[in-house]
Design a protein around this nucleic acid. Structure first.
Length: 276
DNA sequence: TGATGTGTTGGGTG
DNA sequence: CCACCCAACACATC
């Protein structure tokens, strides 16, 4: 499901629903979701009696802050959290169940089983997050154009894979990269080290704007994604190129093309986004 | 029925 | 440093 806007929407929904809640038991049905250092058994043991005091987000990661532990969770492609009464039938693809003190469950579902969660001592949470090697959050006060420009110039690589890499700026995925590049009039294969200062400024501003607007809209509902409250995001209506193959470009009317870049489906307007 | 594509990340190889 | 391929998985679509 998730790029930053969807993860942020999940964070807000979960915060509203379960902060604070005390965990009275955990069941893991697919061990590989739980990554080291703890086995899934130890994971369950450690969480017994812990109260979830806050849920934070860094890039596309969710961070559940508890008494002694922080749980770092990544939804990867299709991970979802739902909250429901604990007597509700466990639906297909449910891999982790957290029983809460008030008779509800927090459940993790993931059709493809790609998502991951891990536990670190809460005092180590800052260090663990640092070790993820994420770039700044795409907010004006965190994401500085000077540093962004410096980083772009010192590598020789196409812009799309560079933005998908989370180390320059955190939170962009396949959908929003295509949207940001279209709005910046930059071809996805453009080399980062020959972007002009003006282009970099536009790109920087569009990253902040697009992700910000998508958060406001509650994310995009593509395929299966719904937020924790069961609502659909509305930003998919604002997508100008993603999934618009052969549709007329909203700026010039040229059919949107789909190509493969960095092994990912990539949508762009061949007239608005010229490769130079 | 088989091939292909899907919102992610990390590891290996050349 | 970078590009590419693959793995983890299930399901929809062509």
């Amino acid at each position: 499901m998730p790029e930053l806007p969807e993860v942020e929407t999940v964070r807000r929904g979960l915060t509203q629903l379960i902060v604070p809640s005390t965990i009275t038991g955990v069941e893991v049905f697919w061990d590989k979701i739980i990554t080291p250092p703890f086995s899934s058994q130890k994971f369950c043991d450690n969480l017994y009696g812990e109260t979830i005091h806050a849920i934070e987000r860094r890039g596309k990661y969710l961070i559940f802050l508890m008494d002694h532990w922080a749980m770092i969770s990544h939804l990867r492609m299709e991970g979802k959290y739902k909250v429901c009464p604990s007597d509700q039938v466990i639906e297909k693809h449910t891999h982790v169940v957290f029983h809460l003190h008030d008779g509800r469950d927090l459940r993790y579902l993931d059709v493809r089983k790609f998502g991951r969660m891990t536990l670190v001592p809460v005092a180590m949470a800052k260090d663990a997050i640092k070790a993820l090697n994420l770039g700044p959050e795409p907010l004006p006060q965190c994401f500085q154009v000077e540093e962004f420009s410096l980083q772009l110039k010192k590598r020789h690589r196409a812009i799309k894979p560079t933005l998908l890499d989370q180390s320059l700026v955190a939170g962009l995925g396949n959908i929003y990269v295509d949207e940001v590049l279209f709005r910046s009039k930059i071809h996805p294969l453009r080399m980062t080290d020959n972007l002009s200062e003006d282009e970099i400024q536009v790109l920087h501003d569009q990253i902040i704007a697009v992700l910000g607007q998508a958060v406001e809209a509650g994310g995009s509902t593509i395929r299966t994604y719904k937020n924790t409250l069961g609502e659909e995001g509305t930003f998919q209506q604002a997508l100008l190129v993603y999934g618009q193959t052969d549709q007329a470009c909203v700026v010039c009317g040229t059919p949107i093309q789909k190509i493969k870049v960095a092994q990912r489906g990539t949508h762009f307007c061949p007239v608005c986004q010229v490769l130079r």
